[in-house]
Design a protein around this nucleic acid. Structure first.
Lengths: 338, 338
DNA sequence: GGATTTTTTGCAACCGGTTGCAATTTTTCT
DNA sequence: AGAAAAATTGCAACCGGTTGCAAAAAATCC
């Protein structure tokens, strides 16, 4: 059915090796045979079978892209950048949707069956051990949006969640809020824990500020809305740091529905700066994660590890910054600016 | 490095064929050898190389999933359902991000190199000829969210955009609007054209209603906002049918910013019913596309075509329905209900 | 021009599996 | 128990490529 190497070889009147070599970067072929082969290939419409060649070269150019975040709009941007970035470097993303699975065994087996060259785990909620399972299985792996660790076992690229928590706290302090709160994502998500730690850490130096905490059941609109609705039933804080933009938007919706206004009655600051957050009817003050940089670094790192497998695991964290929009009261003039 | 068939065969003391057969559905192996092989495989941690086997079986279980919609939040749901649906059936999505590319040649070549078993083109903006290129190259292909055609060359699964346009018109008529408009997506997108056709067709029977048309430059928030802002500078219509939810939200933002309110001053009806549209601070009246059904049918159809390649191309369109929310005035009592 | 070096080429083995076929073993039958 | 039928097994060829090696051809040198 399909055109193979052999067909081209016969048509061009050369050996199969010659054909293989013309399609292999840096192999030794005279320009004369190359021309013959290319002509024959063109006429037959031949293109080499990447999977067959992977058998001998050991490289498939397939990268497993694993995620469990198929409900957070931020991840559409993430998938866009990952797929584009991988394609631009000649790699192909094999997408794995983890949904509610948290055991890596199946994914490891599946990606091994397809001999992927490397694996990218894109998730802020999976535990570090998930990515480690791929390393144990001998696959180059990078955990994107993962958690910082002083002695990492696998490459981690992301943000310093503790620093972000602190940054959020400082933003609220600078704006003179006296009763603040953290509205986190799922309590056991590593990112939630770290953000809470940073937030509380910074506020420890400000005992005059009252601080509370609560958790939404997921990084989702509904969870944020439900939790904020609950909070509004008693005395709410003056401003909330929400562990995620989509959570913030849920909270925003609950606040408006209660007849209160943002930022006059309650302030909100999110985290991520997904595209939607800048929409003028949302206009969320938030902390921006430099997504393109995180993804670029993740890809570079996985490629680097494919090339030198014994590379020492490293953690690359990118700085975030506050994006000033409309859900926090303006910075009071003369207040300490960070 | 990795464990191969041969390793298992040696350890189990059987031939390579025996090992191969124990891992092949419906092959002839005695329970005794099967046990030996499974034990050896277990001990060595063997899992068969799917790509090597694809060489002889001709099946990779890889499905090319092609899209150019990486900015419409609806497509996160689409990717979620596609990846889950494919996985559940033992298939693997190889994701291709088309971005602004519209020439299928590269994608065809790439997917041929990876010997994908089938291709799903998920896009409402690509022309039918895009999907046809895969068929010409001999690959089973389904165009999801594609356009209806009486004599289709490839399988198409989607909605009847003309009927949706009509449905939108009827919804506006039923609510007594007298000056309505279509705010379409890119003028050359096939979906836009069809929706416009249905919309205008239905209104032709109501010459008393004034109807106008304009196009946003993309199916995006910004494009919707820009276009609505422009429309508001002169006398706007009483209600708009927007070609897409995200466009509607952009329009909504422009309207609110102009100090007008929805649905009191201007009504809006979208199309898609993406998850976000139900968020209470958006609360968009819209026409729901039954995304899960479309995706399920697309997967079934691509599998069906893999199994019987000469299957006649068919078009499967799913019915849509209006989802009543808060951006259109309430149906006036006694008004004709459709 | 002939010897030497460099480049190009084809052979054949291999990558990790599958499968038709004939030989062998097991089961069934009388 | 022995013959016939059915099930299992291994051999060897094959899937579509790649690559080390030795032979052949071309280029360089004196």
């Amino acid at each position: 059915m399909a055109i193979t190497l052999k067909d081209v070889a016969e048509r061009a009147g050369v050996s199969r090796s010659a054909v293989s070599r013309t399609f292999t970067e840096g192999a030794s072929v005279s320009s004369k045979t190359r021309a013959k082969v290319e002509r024959a290939a063109e006429e037959l419409g031949y293109s080499p079978n990447a999977l067959a060649s992977s058998l001998t070269t050991g490289r498939t150019k397939l990268i497993g892209l694993i995620s469990n975040n198929f409900h957070n709009p931020l991840f559409l941007e993430v998938f866009d950048l990952f797929t584009r970035g991988l394609q631009d470097r000649g790699l192909r993303p094999l997408l794995v949707n983890l949904s509610d699975e948290t055991d890596p065994a199946q994914s490891v087996q599946m990606l091994r069956q397809y001999s992927v060259d490397g694996v990218i785990v894109a998730s802020s909620t999976l535990s570090p051990s998930f990515a480690e399972a791929f390393k144990t299985a001998g696959m180059p792996v990078v955990h994107s949006f993962g958690r910082f660790s002083t002695a990492p076992n696998v490459h981690v690229v992301g943000i310093d969640n503790v620093a972000c928590g602190r940054m959020a706290a400082e933003a609220l302090i600078a704006r003179g809020y006296k009763r603040v709160a953290f509205l986190g994502g799922p309590e056991l998500a590593t990112s939630t824990q770290d953000r809470a730690m940073g937030f509380f850490g910074a506020l420890r130096e400000h005992p005059e500020i009252d601080v509370t905490i609560s958790y939404a059941s997921a990084y989702s609109f509904d969870a944020g809305r439900v939790e904020m609705t609950r909070l509004l039933m008693t005395e709410p804080a003056e401003a909330y740091f929400c562990g995620d933009d989509v959570l913030s938007i849920g909270a925003l919706s609950a606040i408006e529905e209660a007849g209160l206004s943002v930022p006059e009655d309650i302030g909100l600051i999110g985290l991520n700066d997904m595209d939607m957050s800048r929409w003028q009817n949302i206009d969320l003050t938030t902390i921006r994660q430099p997504i393109p940089e995180i993804i670029g670094a993740s890809i570079d790192l996985v490629i680097g590890t494919i090339e030198s497998p014994d590379r020492h695991p490293e953690t690359r964290l990118f700085p975030c910054r506050v994006i000033e929009r409309g859900t926090l009261r303006r910075l009071s003039h003369g207040a300490p600016q960070t």
